[in-house]
């Protein structure tokens, strides 16, 4: 009897914790939707900010975020897929090199995002960009300052572990006998990877890419001083332009805006857009990953 009561109490307490977490998630979603929905319309999505950013839309922020994540994906996905192939197919798990690479990937996954921002500033802008300027444009300031390319590359480093982990997991679900079938037909290791392993892990590569894009679209700290601006009257024309981003827009509008209350509807609507974007991307990725795992069983 006594034991049963204890059992019930423990089960309830732990269950309540689950409910509290879910409640918070649902409230964030609900409040953002309630606050942002009335202002979410086509004009908001397709117009530039107006009247000192107190009116108008977030079009340049959407475009900026899109371009940034695309460049980021172009850089991070091949890099990540190849590293995953190395870890899953070539690396001898006991070798020091493989262990070090694994540790490096884990380190990249836990380094605070602001550090990536500092690195982008010190390395891409202060080192690569500055040197590019003195080499190509005789010192005229072009690459040695924040821009969308450096921001995207900084973000690519941050999202690299996301890609690596997803792709490696997918590669490892490809049954051993598929590889053996290919090798027994006289395929070389590389042919086997190209024709059996990579096609078999396409969904994993897709999952990794979506997760990386979703992560990159939402992160703000790495781009605070590597390329994001709070207002730009035009869309980025070249890689050396600065850009507006959804996350940065939310941050600026809610903390630095001259009239925070007046812009509240814009803030909520922007948050809703960003949340919908990352949320739906994540939902797709989680479903895909779930399917891969199920297939593996």
């Amino acid at each position: 009897m006594n034991r049963n009561i204890k059992d019930t109490i423990v089960e309830s307490i732990t269950g309540i914790c689950v409910l509290v977490i879910i409640f918070i998630i649902v409230s964030i979603l609900a409040i953002t939707i309630i606050g942002g929905w009335p202002n979410l319309n086509w004009a908001f999505l397709s117009e530039f900010p107006k009247e000192g950013m107190t009116k108008g839309g977030i079009f340049p922020a959407i475009v900026g975020t899109a371009i940034m994540t695309i460049i980021m994906a172009i850089a991070a996905v091949p890099f990540g897929v190849i590293t995953a192939i190395y870890l899953a197919e070539y690396a001898n798990e006991k070798s020091v090199l493989a262990k070090t690479i694994r540790f490096a990937v884990k380190t990249l996954a836990v380094v605070p995002s602001i550090i990536f921002g500092l690195f982008g500033l010190g390395f891409f802008i202060g080192f690569i960009g500055k040197n590019m300027d003195s080499l190509f444009s005789g010192g005229e300031l072009r690459w040695g300052q924040p821009n969308i390319l450096w921001a995207s590359l900084t973000m690519a480093l941050l999202t690299l572990p996301v890609v690596i982990v997803s792709v490696e997991e997918a590669i490892r679900t490809i049954p051993r006998d598929m590889r053996e079938a290919s090798l027994a037909l006289g395929a070389t290791k590389w042919q086997t990877i190209r024709k059996v392993v990579i096609p078999g892990s396409i969904s994993g590569i897709l999952t990794g890419t979506i997760l990386a894009v979703s992560r990159g679209a939402g992160e703000v700290a790495p781009i605070l001083f590597t390329g994001a601006v709070y207002f730009s009257s035009h869309l980025p024309h070249s890689l050396s332009d600065q850009f507006m981003s959804l996350g940065y827009h939310i941050y600026i509008m809610s903390t630095q805006s001259s009239n925070v209350d007046a812009t509240q509807p814009i803030q909520f609507a922007t948050t809703l857009v960003l949340l919908l974007l990352t949320f739906s991307l994540n939902a797709v990725a989680v479903t895909l990953r779930y399917r891969i795992r199920k297939k593996a069983k």
């Binding site: 977490i21 918070i24 998630i25 964030i28 953002t32 979703s214 992560r215 679209a217 939402g218 992160e219 703000v220 700290a221 996350g247 940065y248 939310i250 941050y251 948050t271 960003l274 949340l275 990352t278 949320f279 991307l281 994540n282």
Partner: peptide
């Protein structure tokens, strides 16, 4: 929840 951007 892990997918919620920290800015959100």
């Amino acid at each position: 929840l892990a997918g919620f951007p920290s800015v959100v």
